[in-house]
């Protein structure tokens, strides 16, 4: 027997029964994570279809899944335009929420007095239901787009503000002392210490804000109603409901849900890419 052969035997002998079981369990979990949701989703759609057919439910009450898909394709030109409108408001609101939330958080950590003075306003904006404020906003702001954006922003900016503030303030005390000893300026401390330390917190806020800005955009469209120039997905749903075009309502709903899932996926991916090198949350647990 050659030396390498013995080595190989030793290597195979090193994987015992328990390790094998563990490896198999890991593999099952990995596959299950993708396969199970797909199977479940298929089953639910199938059941939906069966229920409609067996009970003879008319399509203007509950359409079959196939009809929803058909409508989605048939109405695609209209729905696509609406999707773009909703997406535009959502992303713009998210962008303004990021700039406003991070900006306010930075200002708050630079001055305790500003924080004490203005944080309550942020909380009030956050806890008051947006549907209650939105009609006022549409009265005071003439430009429909700006009004939509404002509503969506109010919903989305708070998680970014509060998370980033928390992150900026949660810098390790010894690191803070170290910066002081080395004579760091305020700006250096912010740039090299506080902002990187706040990044994981900010990204957590961003993931929540992504979903909220979509909710904000949809709510804003509802409040704006069908009277104006609105033509987003929520507007399409309202319009379709007046015409009892239930399949189109479902198709628009599908697009909204899809948008939400995509935003979540993109922000999750961003989090992973930015933190994978150093943050505990991005670590794969060993053993």
């Amino acid at each position: 027997m050659s030396v390498t052969e013995i080595d190989k035997m030793a290597a195979t002998a090193l994987i015992d029964e328990e390790e094998l079981r563990y490896a198999r369990a890991q593999k099952r979990e990995k596959i299950g994570k993708w396969v199970l949701p797909i199977i479940m989703l298929t089953l639910v759609i199938f059941a939906w279809d069966r229920v409609v057919v067996m009970n003879n439910i008319p399509h203007y009450i509950l359409p079959r899944p196939g009809l929803v898909l058909e409508t989605l394709i048939k109405d695609w030109p209209i729905l696509w335009q609406s999707l773009l409108v909703t997406l535009k408001i959502t992303l713009m609101a998210l962008a303004v929420a990021v700039v406003g939330g991070v900006g306010l958080a930075v200002i708050f950590t630079q001055s305790r007095f500003l924080e004490m003075s203005f944080y309550p306003f942020a909380v009030i904006l956050q806890v008051t239901p947006i549907v209650a404020i939105a009609p006022l906003i549409f009265i005071y702001i003439d430009n429909k787009i700006v009004a939509l954006l404002t509503v969506a922003w109010i919903v989305a900016f708070f998680p970014i503000l509060s998370n980033t503030t928390l992150g900026l303030n949660s810098v390790d005390h010894n690191l803070r002392d170290l910066y002081k000893i080395y004579g760091a300026s305020r700006w250096q401390r912010l740039r090299y210490l506080q902002l990187p330390a706040a990044l994981p917190y900010f990204l957590g806020g961003l993931r929540i804000a992504g979903g909220l800005s979509l909710i904000g955009a949809v709510v804003a469209e509802y409040v704006a109603g069908t009277g104006g120039m609105g033509s987003g997905l929520a507007f399409r749903i309202l319009e379709a409901s007046y015409r009892l075009n239930i399949p189109r309502m479902f198709a628009a709903l599908l697009l909204i849900a899809g948008t939400g899932v995509s935003i979540f996926a993109v922000t999750s991916l961003l989090t992973h890419l930015l933190l994978r090198k150093w943050h505990e949350s991005a670590l794969k647990r060993e053993g």
């Binding site: 390790d172 010894n174 690191l175 002392d177 170290l178 210490l193 990187p196 090198k277 150093w278 943050h279």
Partner: peptide, 9 residues
């Protein structure tokens, strides 16, 4: 310091 106090990022 007692802890390494490195910047993890």
């Amino acid at each position: 310091f007692q802890e390494p106090t490195l910047m993890p990022w």
